[in-house]
């Protein structure tokens, strides 16, 4: 399965919240096919009994108490927001 179709590119783009024009879809299909095709080399290896590595250090879950603390003010939190109104971040309508 080294061939990634234009349809697949459109499907993955939707999952990733990206959009491409027709020309870019075709180019992306070619590039991803070539990268994934190269990565198929991993199938040469028998990994049946190999444990996956998610993290290189021997760390257990690190827990802390869920306690509220003062960090930033509402004003600060809004400083970098592209749009705001009445102390809140404003976004376009969600429903039509």
């Amino acid at each position: 399965m080294a061939e990634i179709s234009k349809e697949q590119v459109k499907h993955v783009a939707n999952l990733a919240r990206l959009e491409f024009d027709d020309e870019a879809v075709e180019q992306m299909a070619n590039e991803l096919s070539s990268i994934i095709g190269y990565a198929e080399q991993l199938n040469e290896l028998d990994t049946e009994n190999v444990k996956p590595t998610t993290h290189v250090l021997d760390l257990k879950n690190v827990m802390r108490k869920d306690e509220p603390k003062k960090w930033i003010t509402q004003e600060e939190a809004l400083k970098n927001a592209p749009d705001q109104k009445d102390g809140q971040i404003r976004v376009p309508s969600i429903l039509e």
């Binding site: 399965m1 990634i4 697949q8 590119v9 993955v12 783009a13 999952l15 990733a16 990206l18 992306m28 991803l32 990268i35 994934i36 990565a39 991993l42 199938n43 290896l45 990994t47 190999v50 444990k51 996956p52 590595t53 998610t54």
Partner: peptide, 25 residues
Amino acid sequence: MLGTFALSSGYYDAYYKKAQKVRTL
């Protein structure tokens, strides 16, 4: 796009998990 593909339903085991196992090796 590559990452979303490797994590997407139907390809997760073949690509992402496989790569995690090779990482162990």
